[in-house]
């Protein structure tokens, strides 16, 4: 390649990357640096005049508090459970839908509804449906002779219910991406495997699924990032309760920052959340080898 082509190439790459880079630097780097500075300070909106940098005191206090470790545990359990349910359901339904011939447009539209409805309205509707005495879920249970449940009242049940509601809202997201991957899939390897006498299960698990991995990896990474910082569902349905049984890191940060107005401490929690997410995604993406360009020009 001669040098003028090399220069053109570099200029093209630069030109394509610059606009997005400028926007993201402007909009995300500044807020990040500000909250990093906050996390090393004792900034509290109750006593804003006492501002001082206390360096790692916030982090020390956090790591010593059992509340923090409880929140870490709940956040991790919630994230893993929700993403696992959504992944299995989303991929399974996408595979079945790929094969279906009847009423596919209708089904696809219905599947998108939980993603399309305004979450504020949906989550409050869930709150009334889950109400132990007024709710329709317990009413239906009674009709078929089962005992009513205290959906949000006991620690284990509350977390399970939250996972179910999150799965209701977000399974369509995985479903949409998996369906896109299936539609774009190259079908020849499947044909070849079938010629070799592979059964449908084998074809699905050994050929179809691996070809979907790149798409699913992206879906899982994004869903995990978002599930890790879920706020609205938990805030509206349990507010972190009963007790602190569903108080995730994000709710803890919200409580410290916007209720107790301890911005420094809240920022420290947020920074720890960010570091945890970065480590998780680095490990995950390296493990599945997402970083290499597959067919570079």
């Amino acid at each position: 390649m001669n040098s003028s082509a090399g220069r053109d190439r570099r200029r093209f790459v630069l030109l394509m990357l610059t606009p997005a880079t400028v926007l993201l630097l402007g909009l995300t780097l500044v807020p990040f640096l500000v909250s990093l500075a906050f996390s090393f300070s004792n900034l509290s909106l109750v006593t804003p005049d006492d501002f001082a940098y206390i360096w790692f005191e916030n982090f020390g206090r956090m790591f010593e508090s059992p509340e923090f470790w409880n929140a870490v545990r709940i956040t991790v359990v919630f994230t893993i459970a929700a993403v696992a349910v959504e992944l299995v359901l989303g991929v399974g339904i996408a595979a079945l839908l790929h094969n279906e011939t009847r009423a596919v447009p209708a089904l696809r539209l219905i599947y998108l509804l939980p993603l399309a409805i305004t979450p504020v309205a949906a989550v409050f509707t869930f709150r009334i449906m889950l109400n132990p005495s007024l709710g329709v879920f317990n009413y239906l249970l009674k009709q078929i002779g089962l005992p009513p449940q205290d959906w949000l009242g006991t620690p284990g049940m509350a977390l399970t219910t939250l996972v179910a509601v999150d799965a209701w809202q977000w399974t369509p997201f995985i479903l949409l991406i998996a369906a896109g991957g299936l539609a774009a899939m190259d079908e020849e390897p499947l044909e070849a495997a079938q010629m070799d006498g592979a059964g449908p299960f084998e074809i699905f698990f050994h050929h179809t699924l691996p070809m979907l991995y790149p798409y699913l990896a992206v879906a899982v990474v994004f869903r995990s990032i978002d599930a890790f910082k879920t706020f609205d569902i938990i805030f509206v349905l349990t507010g972190g309760g009963p007790g602190i049984a569903t108080r995730t890191l994000n709710l803890l940060a919200y409580k410290q920052g916007l209720e107790f107005l301890e911005m420094g401490y809240a920022a420290a929690i947020a920074i720890v959340m960010l570091i945890m997410t970065i480590i998780f995604s680095q490990v995950f993406l390296r493990r599945i080898n997402m970083f290499r360009p597959k067919a570079a020009l």
């Binding site: 995300t28 807020p31 990040f32 990032i225 809240a266 960010l274």
Partner: peptide, 24 residues
């Protein structure tokens, strides 16, 4: 830096809103 650039784009989604809102 191709891979690092890609990862940096991903990190922009990771910051919890609580930390972003006040500076924003």
């Amino acid at each position: 830096g191709n891979a690092d650039f890609g990862f940096w784009i991903l990190t922009t989604r990771m910051t919890p809103p609580v930390a972003m809102l006040i500076p924003f």
